[in-house]
């Protein structure tokens, strides 16, 4: 299904994500990597010292969609697959892979690249490559 090309909204939204990352570094000296923030509050080895910060950041994240609804009067547009098995597999791979590789789109893709980290640049190229291949296989071979 086609989606509309939204260069301005996407650029501005990206800017807000960047502003959030800068805020977190300026106030707490932390990298805004979502997989890291989430995994640190999960067992085993819960990061007790960082627990309140992690939980509060996640509450902020969860409040964004309700706030959007209040301010704009409409729920954000979204199409999520209804293939439950596919989403379970996708979730397992995203969770396992992001923790094993120490980061996801935010930690490696935004913060790491901005710091010029060679590890993050390598990770971003790697996950972009496998994601492109996965969608190609899924849409043009399996469902093609």
């Amino acid at each position: 299904m086609e989606t509309e090309f939204t260069p301005f909204a996407s650029l501005l939204g990206g800017g807000l994500i960047g502003l959030s990352a800068v805020t977190l570094l300026a106030t707490h000296g932390r990298i805004a990597g979502i997989s890291g923030i989430v995994s640190r509050v999960l067992p085993p080895s819960v990061d007790k010292a960082g627990l309140p910060q992690g939980i509060i950041f996640l509450i902020g994240l969860l409040l964004a969609a309700p706030l959007w609804f209040v301010l704009t009067g409409a729920a954000p547009v979204q199409i999520v697959s209804s293939n439950e098995l596919l989403l379970v597999i996708a979730g397992l791979l995203v969770g396992f892979g992001s923790v094993l590789g120490n980061g996801c789109t935010s930690g490696h893709g935004v913060c790491g690249i901005s710091r010029g980290s060679a590890r993050s640049i390598a990770a971003t190229i790697t996950f972009m490559a496998t994601a492109f291949v996965t969608v190609f296989v899924l849409r043009h071979i399996v469902w093609g």
Partner: peptide, 21 residues
Amino acid sequence: KLVVGAATFGIGWGLGGFCPG
């Protein structure tokens, strides 16, 4: 771990269109 983790993450991201944030 970095490469295998990122590669695994990318496959899941492509399958579901979702990353953690």
